[in-house]
Amino acid sequence: MRYLALFRVFFRTSIQTDMEYRVDFFSRIIASLLALLTTMAGLSIAFTYTSSIKGWSFPQVMVLLSVYYLMDGLIEMFIAPNMRNIMAQVRDGTLDFLLLKPVPVQFLATFRTVNIWRIVNVLVALGLSSYTIGKLSLTVGGVQALTFIVTLAAGCGIIYSFWLILVTLTFWFVRVDNIEQIIWQAFEAGRYPIEIYPVWLRNALTYVVPVAFIITVPAKALTGQIGLSYALVSVCVSAIALLLSSLFWRFGLKFYTGASA
């Protein structure tokens, strides 16, 4: 409850901050539509030569793409701005202020900011997915919707953990600007069905950087390719990731305050 109340306050002040940058709202709309259209154009060209790629039909790939953009929007809205802040705060020492507060630092550091205009990306992605689902003339039942929401939430937990682990490295190395590059490179691989990649890369994208769980699994849930039991696996992976990243963060924090020596 306490955390929910705190998050509400954080959310409200974030919106106020972003109202100062209203231009961003319009540039967001244009940028996200452009990105979507160019990827769609590329895909539709590929699909003029074949009706399916590794078992994925064009509409299914479109659903995957919309999940990719949905996830991208959620990351940019809730996760990325906070992770970027942590790196900056370690560099300029303002992380100290978070350590002084009577609230767990991880919560304070990773939920403080919401980048509200990124909601545009989320909405565009949702629009695209409902459109393609209509095209597939799929009816999304209750179980399917539930599976989708659960796997999507699990995916958010996984990418959050992955990013938190990399950000924790700043406690030792201070400057790790390429971290974001690593994350986005891996994430972009999830824009296409994981089956199109060679086996070694597919394994890497499932077990090392679990992009499969972040994008492919929720997309399959939405198109009915997997059932609720599969969602359980996703939730387990996410829970383990959250636990490990939190432990690593605490270990890093100990190093930051000199308690580990």
Partner: peptide, 11 residues
């Protein structure tokens, strides 16, 4: 607004 955040943090 920062004060309000602190109000929430310190309850």
């Amino acid at each position: 607004d920062s004060f309000i955040v602190n109000q929430a943090i310190y309850e």
